[in-house]
Design a protein around this nucleic acid. Structure first.
Length: 266
DNA sequence: AACCCTGTTATCGA
DNA sequence: TTCGATAACAGGGT
């Protein structure tokens, strides 16, 4: 489910618990979401700490707790983050429940493609891995020059699968990639190297879609406007909001890709 | 009942 | 080395 802006939305869901103590923790210790961490250690060390707040990087979420304790979450396909009332009973897919006096902070994920990792570090210092993440699309480092290097380095890779590569476009997921290519009028199966002449427009569209998604979705999960491809892409018989031509769905690297064959050439 | 899925990773082979 | 195809993960919606 979640891409850049949805992830940002979820990251904020625990905000009500900022400054409050985690009195008790419930985990599903065998859950696949803990495959890279020790959930027993997580439980014993995190209990009693105070929730400080969250930050995101692409699809990654980092939750900070007092005493240099951190939870790093990825939502996979079906992960979500919410709060529940203090009397909440752990549900089937609630893999992590942080109980505070006034509420519960919950990580939920039916398919368990998501992941939760526990880190400890010097106070106020994010885990080392966090600093090694690639430039975010909406950061100043994500320039046309930077994008050009990416297109050259992965010249033979088809542009759509490349856009889904989190090493280069952190936060971009399936619908955002389609939206970017539709706006840039680029066919998703163009090799990245063939798009060098369009680097600056591709860069602009990429940033535009990310910024737009953050504006519309991140604050309160708003619906994107009808002018976006997004609202038409899943409907059978959907048509291009720009030219009215029938939208097409193809498979690329195993992912459904929606495009307008009239607007997007190549 | 069959097929779909806003994600990621390992493996095999060209 | 790089990249594509494929499967696997696991559950819910249509």
């Amino acid at each position: 489910m979640p891409e850049l802006a949805e992830v940002a939305y979820y990251a904020r869901q625990w905000d009500a618990g900022i400054g409050s103590r985690v009195a008790e923790i419930e985990v599903h210790p065998r859950a696949r979401v803990f495959r890279d961490t020790d959930s027993v250690e997580l439980t014993s060390i995190l209990t009693g700490s105070i929730y400080r707040g969250s930050r995101t990087h692409g699809k990654q979420i980092l939750f900070e707790f007092s005493g240099g304790r951190w939870l790093w979450a990825q939502l996979g396909m079906t992960g979500s983050i919410c709060t529940e009332p203090s009397e909440h009973h752990q549900e089937k897919h609630d893999h992590l429940v942080l109980r505070q006096k006034q509420r519960c902070l919950v990580f939920r994920d039916p398919r368990m493609f998501g992941r939760v990792r526990f880190f400890q570090s010097a106070k106020g210092k994010a885990p080392n891995e966090w600093d090694g993440l690639p430039p975010e699309v909406l950061s100043d480092e994500f320039t046309a020059t930077h994008l050009e290097k990416v297109l050259r380095r992965r010249a033979k890779t088809l542009i759509k699968p490349l856009l889904l590569d989190q090493n280069f476009f952190p936060g971009v997921g399936n619908w955002m990639a389609d939206e970017i290519l539709w706006r840039a009028r680029v066919h998703p199966s163009q090799p990245a190297g063939s798009l060098l002449p369009q680097t600056s427009s591709l860069c602009r569209r990429t940033r535009e879609v990310c910024r737009g998604a953050m504006r519309v979705i991140a604050p309160d999960w708003g619906d994107p406007p009808r002018s976006w491809l997004f609202t038409h892409r899943w409907k059978d018989g959907g048509s291009c909001p720009r030219c009215g031509f029938d939208l097409e769905r193809i498979q690329l690297r195993g992912r459904t890709t929606c495009l307008c064959a009239t607007c997007q050439t190549g």
